[in-house]
């Protein structure tokens, strides 16, 4: 079994607060947890050091940057050439996520694109690869919901 980094309830509360607002004031979180601001700061540093928290970032609206179309792809590939096709797909600047997967398709990818016209070009480009079979596309409709808070922390130390 893999070993899980030691995190306790205070760590989880820090993560929950930062998931909602990464700029949250450590002194406010400290007050909520009944510990010092320094403790919060140290704990967050530790979580970054051991890789639980990869960092903090702002959530941008792709439309503000001229990207009007988010789409996912399910790609069926000759299974001996998955790695090669992944490199081929990942090379496209619009691809923001690309992974081998198990299921009907053996590659799953997400792209952020200027418009549907570009989506068509990208799809055609992928299909031109000789080892690529079926390419399924789904355009994400506006109200995409992101819920990072749905991560459950199963392995926290009970005090």
């Amino acid at each position: 079994m893999p070993s899980f980094a030691n995190i306790d309830e205070i760590d989880v509360r820090i993560i929950r607060a930062l998931q909602k607002d990464a700029r949250a004031n450590f002194s406010h979180i400290a007050k909520d947890c009944g510990v010092s601001t320094d403790t919060i700061s140290k704990r967050f540093k530790r979580m970054k050091r051991n890789g639980i928290a990869r960092g903090t970032t702002v959530l941008l609206n792709p439309r503000s940057f001229g990207y009007d179309c988010v789409s996912s792809f399910g790609i069926r590939v000759d299974h001996l050439h998955v790695g090669e096709v992944i490199d081929f797909v990942d090379e496209l600047p619009e691809i923001v996520f690309c992974t081998p997967s198990l299921g009907r398709h053996n590659i799953f990818a997400i792209a952020v694109l200027k418009d549907v016209g570009r989506l068509e070009q990208v799809k055609e480009h992928i299909k031109r690869h000789p080892k690529v079979g079926e390419v399924m596309t789904s355009i994400w409709v506006d109200e995409t919901q992101l819920c990072p808070e749905n991560f459950e922390f199963q392995h926290i130390k009970k005090k």
Partner: peptide, 22 residues
């Protein structure tokens, strides 16, 4: 609405998630 918010990026593997699914 250019910046919709901010968040902390968590590595699911470190908190016990071995797989992702669509």
């Amino acid at each position: 609405g250019v910046i919709r918010g901010s968040t902390v990026v968590i590595d699911p593997k470190k908190i016990g998630y071995q797989a992702m699914a669509v």
